[in-house]
Every structure is written in structure tokens, then in C-alpha cells.
Amino acid sequence: MAKHNTHRTPGLARTPIAGARKAAYGVGGAAILGSVLVGTAFTGGAAQAAPAAPAAPAQSAPAAQTAAPSAALDSTEKLRWGSRGDNVEDLQKALNDNGASLEVDGVFGKRTHAAVKDYQAANDLQVDGVVGPQTRGALNGGSSTPVGGSASASSSEGSSSSSSIVDAARSAVGTPYSWGGSSLSGMDCSGLVNFAYEAAGIDLPRSSGAIADGGRTISQSEARPGDIVAWPGHVAIYAGDGQVIDASGSKQRVVERSIWGNPTFVSYR
């Protein structure tokens, strides 16, 4: 009768594998060692990583703040083509704050004049290229009423400048015509207009074309003495009642005479 061999093979120990498996394996055949989950060599199961920590919410950048105007405009001086100085620099900075791209040089020339007109058109202001109370107030972001001023004061100032301009132009009647001149020894049409406006403290462009383009075009019914009457290549001072004062090339002197043809009327006030 055969007997069961109770001898063990030398060097080999019998291990209760089934019991060990039951205690050491979790769902899917993965071995659990403490709190770390690893793959099992017996089943070839893949290791499972612990879930990643949630990312911190992104911080939004602070909203950009609108820059304040670089400079406030002077509340009394009217600026126009030909003006110069610190107030013009402040104007150019204010226009740049509103989208212009000007050199801040303190000279109110062609580019500054065009930028003023663009600003006036964009802000429903009178488009005349002159920085008076309305345009100044809009650029300053406040009231358009000049400090210490009033409508009646402005009207009086306008009447005074009209008289000064016309009186200066009349003082030049009889002066010889001289191309490029602007004095009582001789003057051309734009020289006369500059001579008359200088008497009222107003700087204008030097050429007739720039004078005509630089102001605000008005109708003849709106024209006041001292405004400018312009034809192609020629300018004159409006004297009122259908009369002009001009340095006439054909008459070779400064004269006062009736308006002719279909001129354009231009105001710098």
C-alpha cells in the first residue's frame, strides 16, 4: 500500500499563498501597501496614481485705468493757428490724450489745427479749428464757460477786435503793393491781413491759401467787420456793408472797394 510522501523538498518552504493573496489584494488585483496603490506582478495590473490636487483659480489682472489728461488748458486764452507757447503745448498734450499724435512743440501749425478740427467734429463742437470756450471746456472735461467770463464780455471783446482789425487795415490804405511785404512801406494781400490782425493781437498763417483754410467758413450774412474775404490766391479784410480792404495787385496799392465775384467768408473768432 502506497504511503503519502511527507518529506518536503529540501530548501523549499510552503507558503500559504491563497491567504496572503486574499489579505494583500484589493479590487482589480492591485496590492495595497499602506495607503499607496501599486500594480501587482501576478496580474500585470497598472498602477493607479492618486488624484491631483485642484489647481488654484487664476487671478485676473486688474483693469487698466484711464489716464488723466496731461494738462489742463488755460481758461482765458483763445488758441488758433499761429499761437505759440506753453498753452499750445498743453493743448497738444490734451489732443494727444484724445488720440492725436502731435509733436509737443508749442507751435499751433497745420497739424495742430487739423487735430483740433478732428476733435471738434468727433465731439459735436463747432468745427472751426479755434480753441475757444467750448472746445477748451470739452478738452478739460468740464464746463465750457470761461472762468470769470460771460457771453456779454465775449461779445464786447469781439466788437473791440473787429474795430482794431478794420482800423489797422484802413490805416494802410494807399500803401504800395509789394510781394511778400507786410508793413506800411509795402505789402501784399496776405501781408495786409496779417498786419491788420496783429493790431488785434491775433497771429495768422502767412500765405493767402493758409489764411483761407485756417479759419471757420461762414456765410456772407454771418460776416462781421474784421472777418476775412477770400478768393483763390487772394484775401481781404471785410469792412462791412459789402466793402473790403485789400492790397490789390492790379491797382498796385491797398484800397477799400466793393466785393466782387463769389468769395468765401472766413472767421477766426
Rank of each mutant, 00 (worst) to 15 (best):
A200M: 11
A52Y: 03
A55M: 11
L139H: 06
I228C: 10
S190M: 08
V131G: 07
I17E: 08
A138M: 10
G106V: 11
A50F: 09
S178Q: 03
S144D: 05
L33D: 15
G129P: 14
T43M: 09
S185M: 04
G19F: 12
R21T: 09
R170H: 03
A94P: 02
G106E: 09
G132S: 01
S208H: 07
D105W: 00
A200Y: 12
A2M: 15
T76R: 09
T76P: 05
L37A: 14
S60P: 15
W231L: 10
P57D: 02
S152K: 09
V27W: 01
V266T: 13
P51D: 14
S221D: 13
S152H: 13
D124H: 07
G261K: 07
P146Q: 02
D105C: 10
G85R: 02
R21L: 14
G226I: 06
F265R: 05
L79D: 05
I237Q: 05
S248G: 06
K251F: 15
P133M: 02
A122Q: 05
P16E: 07
D118E: 07
P16I: 04
L139T: 14
V36N: 10
E256I: 11
K110R: 11
P62W: 08
G215E: 08
F108P: 02
Q65D: 00
K117N: 12
P54D: 05
V38S: 13
R206G: 15
S75A: 10
L12F: 09
S164F: 15
V266Y: 09
E157Q: 15
A94C: 04
A230D: 09
P62T: 03
S70E: 04
S152Q: 14
A68Y: 00
P225D: 02
A100T: 06
L95K: 05
A2F: 11
A23E: 02
G249A: 13
P205A: 03
C189V: 11
Y25E: 13
Q120G: 09
Y177W: 03
Q243I: 00
A63R: 09
V166M: 12
A122W: 01
A153W: 05
A138D: 10
I202Q: 08
P146S: 02
A61F: 01
A212K: 14
S160N: 09
D213N: 14
D227C: 05
W81A: 12
A31H: 01
D90P: 04
D97H: 05
T40L: 01
A223S: 12
T40A: 07
G85D: 00
S267G: 09
T112V: 01
T9G: 06
D105L: 03
D167Q: 14
P205Y: 07
T145C: 08
A236R: 00
G261P: 10
V88M: 04
G85F: 00
I259M: 15
A13D: 02
S155A: 13
P205I: 10
G19W: 07
E198D: 15
L192I: 05
A13L: 01
S155G: 11
V88L: 08
F265T: 13
T6N: 13
A18R: 08
S182G: 15
